[in-house]
């Protein structure tokens, strides 16, 4: 493993175990299946932000299966639920930056304000660096005060070059220059930061669309990934965010940020269920190294893991 992901992920998930899912796991290993078990199960999923609709869908399909397979033990149900939840998150046929190695891969990073885009970009940059790739950053957030400075600090720390214009400038122009620079400097990956925007702001979403098309006009096929950064603390609004950003710029995958808190990002179950978007990365801290490739089985397993309790 090239970086400390198992520890980090495990640590952050330990806290989950001790909280909602810990209780869930405790509950499931106990006794026989009763009506109460199912109700409690629903309650616990809802408290993990899984959302009413997805919870009901998960639990009722589990109930059917338990009836079909004559399962009466509650702990067997845990294994089944784990299976169903993992299956739900495993979007088939899509990996991060798939296919043959390109001369230049462009990754566009989008999301609402404060979701963790800039920190997420530092992590992505580090991830690519550790894979031995040359990275260039583009400071596409020209709006928020000191957003450029923030990215600059990260770029300097990581020893990466940054393409930036003046604050208040046109983000489309930044992207145009950055793609040009990335091509002539022969870097492997260009990561583009964008200003945080609420998905309900029509004109800002139009601006994002423009940034996207500037990239694709200059380099056919770009951006090769458009990542939506989703804050793990976010509740049901996460689904609306994913929908609207998806409509505007064709989001190709998710970066689940801030997974080191006690919130567990249960909203991804709804997002993946409806939009079939893969989750590529999880952010687990404030350092550039605090990032892990997302693995559904690990994510779900960790939620149920009894070890250490």
């Amino acid at each position: 493993m090239i970086f400390k992901r198992p520890d980090k992920l495990r640590n952050s998930l330990t806290r989950t175990r001790q909280s909602v899912f810990g209780r869930l796991a405790g509950l499931l290993t106990q006794t026989e299946l009763t009506e109460e078990t199912w109700e409690e199960l629903e309650a616990l999923l809802i408290q993990a932000d899984v959302g009413v609709e997805t919870t009901v869908a998960l639990v009722s399909s589990l109930r059917e299966r338990a009836a079909r397979e004559h399962i009466r033990q509650a702990d067997r149900v845990q294994a089944l639920l784990q299976e169903e939840m993992t299956a739900l998150l495993n979007v088939p046929g899509r990996s991060y930056l798939p296919g043959e190695k390109r001369p230049l891969s462009v990754v566009l990073v989008v999301g609402v304000n404060g979701s963790g885009k800039t920190t997420g970009i530092a992590k992505l940059a580090r991830y690519h660096q550790l894979r031995g790739e040359r990275v260039l950053l583009a400071a596409g957030d020209t709006f928020r005060a000191a957003a450029i400075d923030q990215l600059k600090v990260w770029a300097d720390r990581l020893g990466i070059e940054l393409i930036a214009h003046q604050a208040g400038g046109d983000p489309g122009a930044v992207v145009f220059d950055a793609v040009g620079a990335a091509l002539s400097r022969r870097v492997d990956v260009l990561i583009v930061d964008t200003a945080g925007r609420l998905h309900t702001k029509h004109n800002l979403m139009q601006e994002l669309r423009k940034i996207h098309s500037v990239a694709s006009r200059q380099l056919p096929g770009a951006p090769h990934e458009t990542l939506l950064v989703l804050d793990a603390t976010t509740g049901q609004n996460g689904l609306a965010q994913a929908r609207t950003f998806g409509e505007a710029v064709d989001v190709t995958g998710l970066f689940l940020a801030k997974l080191d808190g006690t919130a567990k990002g249960g909203i991804v179950f709804s997002v993946v269920r409806e939009l079939k978007l893969p989750i590529f990365f999880v952010g687990t801290g404030e350092q550039a190294e605090d990032v892990a490739e997302f693995r559904a089985s690990e994510f779900v397993e960790g939620l149920f893991d009894q070890g250490g309790l």
Partner: peptide, 8 residues
């Protein structure tokens, strides 16, 4: 944040 979920 108004978008915060159950963990608030």
């Amino acid at each position: 944040d108004a978008m915060t979920g159950q963990d608030a």
